[in-house]
Simulated assay, not measured.
Amino acid sequence: MIMTQTAVSTASRDAEHEPLLEVDDLKVEFRVGHGVVSAVNGVSFTLEKGRTLAVVGESGSGKSVTAQAIMRLLQTPPARVTGGRILFQGRDLLQLSESAHRAVCGEHIAIVFQDALAALNPVYSIGFQLSEALRRRRHLSRSRARARAIELLQLVEVPNASQRVKDYPHQFSGGMRQRVMIAMALALEPEVLIADEPTTALDVTVQAQIMRLLGEIQAEREMGMILITHDLGVVAEVADEVNVMYAGRVVEQAPVEQIFARPGHPYTQALLRSIPRLDRKGHQLDAISGRPPELTRIPAGCPFHPRCDRAEDICRSDPAPALRELAGGRSAACQFAE
């Protein structure tokens, strides 16, 4: 069949606007001695080329488990993906063989972990660890891989890269180790970068440097980035869209400006109230009452209702509400969101 020029142009436009990554109704559980932990309960989102999606929520909300499911890093057992799809450029990663999945996530999707010291091997030099993927995946010679490792360290602004490439992880500061982790993630020039708490335990100055660096590299390469973080200040600076997660569910999705200007879900509103503010100096911080539910015993109805000051009988008795569209490109999983 011969395609007309119009059909070719239409197909090209459709491919151009197809999401880089699409997670559709993802479900992950852990079977443990005292029951089944429902860690991810129907998470869906899309990531576009050159855009940053921030995923926020308290510890245990399912943020990192979602990322690890994408990368197939969950230990099985006890973890098990029980439903959903993870589409990268139209291919369902959950249906790929182990070797095929490794090829995709090794070259096209990369992750930066929150604990660089634990992620780096202490007995190998930084240069060896940077070179290994290049030699295996790109079949570079030892000398060319080493030269590329130095280039990567220079890209992430590690001073005196030609000498530091010989050093070991313990010889680097926390901020420099995080830069090395970013260099390793970028070595194969991925289209998608997952940054899982990339600035945890770093001081605010180093945090700003790391996020600036990620932003510059993202803009240069037009990568899609998923940023998992607790820091709403960072979210305000770098994100395009935001997913708010609670008890394994996405309870709000919105453009970053709308999240701060018009949060729809009571949980999002409570998170924003808990941010320290200069204009409230001397005032007590607003804390969210209670604690997140145990994922083996998620309450009936809306999972947030035991901590919500707006909860009514419908919130306790009806099934957990699905995301529904609101004004301004927002969606929230709440009966009363406006």
Rank of each mutant, 00 (worst) to 15 (best):
L232D: 10
M181D: 00
T205E: 12
E220L: 14
R221P: 12
A254S: 03
L193K: 02
G215K: 10
V234P: 02
G248C: 03
I194H: 10
V250F: 03
V256T: 11
A195H: 01
H170E: 11
G174Q: 06
A208V: 02
Q218M: 09
E241K: 13
V238D: 09
A185R: 03
V204D: 02
D203T: 00
I226L: 14
M223A: 00
L188M: 13
M245E: 06
R249K: 15
L232Y: 09
G175Q: 05
I228L: 05
H230P: 06
K166S: 14
L202W: 03
A187T: 07
S162Y: 13
E189S: 15
G174F: 01
T205D: 09
E220G: 12
Q178L: 12
G224H: 03
M211Q: 13
G248Q: 06
V251L: 01
R177V: 06
Q209F: 08
A239G: 02
V165I: 12
M225K: 11
Y168F: 13
S162P: 11
Q178E: 10
V192Q: 05
A254M: 01
E216H: 13
A195E: 00
A201H: 02
E241Y: 14
L186Q: 04
A236E: 00
E197V: 00
D167N: 14
A239N: 01
E252S: 06
V165A: 02
R221Y: 12
Q209N: 11
R249I: 05
P255H: 03
L193C: 08
A219M: 13
A239Y: 08
M181N: 04
G174S: 01
V251M: 07
V250T: 11
V192W: 07
A183L: 10
I217M: 09
V256Q: 05
Y246K: 00
G224T: 00
A236Q: 05
P169Q: 02
A201T: 07
G233Q: 09
E216Q: 15
M225I: 14
I210N: 02
A219C: 12
A195Y: 01
E222A: 15
G215Q: 12
V250D: 08
Y246N: 02
T229L: 00
Q209Y: 08
R177C: 06
T199W: 03
M176F: 00
M223N: 04
R177I: 08
I194Y: 05
I217G: 09
R177K: 10
A183R: 05
N243K: 12
L232Q: 07
A247E: 10
R249V: 11
Q163R: 14
M181Y: 04
D196P: 01
Q163T: 14
I194C: 12
R177M: 02
Y246V: 03
L227C: 07
L188Q: 09
V204E: 00
A208L: 06
V238P: 04
A187K: 02
H170Q: 12
Q253H: 15
N243M: 15
P190L: 08
L202P: 01
A247Y: 02
E197Q: 01
A187W: 04
L232C: 09
V204L: 05
A183F: 07
E237L: 13
L193Q: 10
V235F: 00
A187I: 06
M225L: 14
V165W: 05
E257N: 13
M184D: 11
M181K: 05
L188R: 07
A254K: 02
I217L: 14
T200Y: 11
E189G: 11
P255C: 01
L186G: 10
A219K: 15
E191H: 12
E189H: 14
I217V: 14
